[in-house]
């Protein structure tokens, strides 16, 4: 990883930051395998550069960005965000990146654009989890946001963490971070961002719609079918008796910023 020019940004979480070792060695990234340790141990072959990211679809100025040109064009900020996984564990991670809104503003979404569809990379030769098998998802991994969610100042395109470029296992070279949503919304190693009119398909929702919704907002009152979401295990709290469980907050604690996006929407139905 290389050092990035970054400066502290807004929305800094007050909680204790998760250790770099844990942030980079406890990961869900099915492209590299099912276990939490697979991404760190099996991503050595992955080459995140050269890399292009295309912004296309219903925009006035579609463009294919070289990743380093993009990083040079965007002022980077450090955002210390809480991260809540749908599996009921959480971290606090210092991301380096820029608001997705800044990139979308350059592309100028057309009036007909209502959703943003994201697509990840397919490289079975470099990503052992993509070589098929029982546990395989449908590739590429795809995700989506409503346009207003995508334009929200909290929504980040991260190109680094802890002040350095993203390690492969964390989604190099560029990934999405939406801190009020469950972690699986944070699509990694993005190749394509497309502005569209209709709600795009999303990988986990297609895999198991009863367990993973399109919105996937962190919500302690809406249980996962297999476990409660009322509380979460704090990663790296230290051993059995580190007291590592805490209450989960609505919108992961970002309600003041994002609750307005959902108005009177029924969040149990649109989970």
């Amino acid at each position: 990883a290389e050092a990035l020019h970054t400066r502290p940004g807004p929305f800094q979480a007050a909680e204790k930051t998760t250790a770099l070792q844990d942030v980079t060695h406890y990961n869900n990234f099915y492209e590299f395998g099912l276990d939490k340790t697979d991404p760190s141990t099996r991503s050595g072959q992955f080459r995140p550069r050269p890399w292009t990211l295309s912004v296309e679809g219903l925009v006035a100025h579609p463009r294919v960005w070289d990743i380093d040109a993009l990083i040079a064009a965007m002022p980077l900020e450090e955002r210390l965000y809480r991260m809540r996984c749908v599996e009921a564990w959480s971290m606090v991670i210092p991301w380096d990146g820029f608001p997705l809104a800044s990139l979308l503003a350059l592309a100028e979404p057309l009036g007909s654009a209502r959703y943003v569809a994201f697509e990840s990379v397919v490289r079975p030769a470099e990503m052992p989890g993509q070589t098929g098998g029982l546990d395989s998802l449908a590739w590429p991994y795809v995700e989506g946001l409503r346009l207003d969610e995508a334009m929200h100042p909290l929504t980040l395109l991260a190109v680094g963490l802890y002040g350095e470029t993203l390690p492969n296992q964390n989604g190099a070279p560029v990934r999405l971070v939406v801190p009020w949503k469950y972690g699986f919304k944070g699509i990694k190693s993005i190749t394509r961002i497309r502005l569209v009119e209709k709600m795009p398909p999303t990988t986990w929702n297609q895999m198991n719609p009863a367990e993973y919704g399109f919105f996937a907002n962190v919500n302690p009152d809406v249980d996962h079918p297999r476990w409660s979401q009322a509380s979460e295990r704090v990663i790296g709290a230290g051993g059995f008796f580190g007291g590592g469980r805490k209450k989960t907050l609505m919108f992961n604690g970002y309600g003041a910023q994002v609750a307005g996006l959902y108005g009177t929407m029924n969040l149990s139905r649109f989970y």
């Binding site: 060695h25 939490k36 051993g239 059995f240």
Partner: peptide, 18 residues
Amino acid sequence: YFWYGAHDRLGPDPVNVF
């Protein structure tokens, strides 16, 4: 594993692992 877990040697999510 109990000994590992009690001494914080079961990784970052020890209860789940155990």
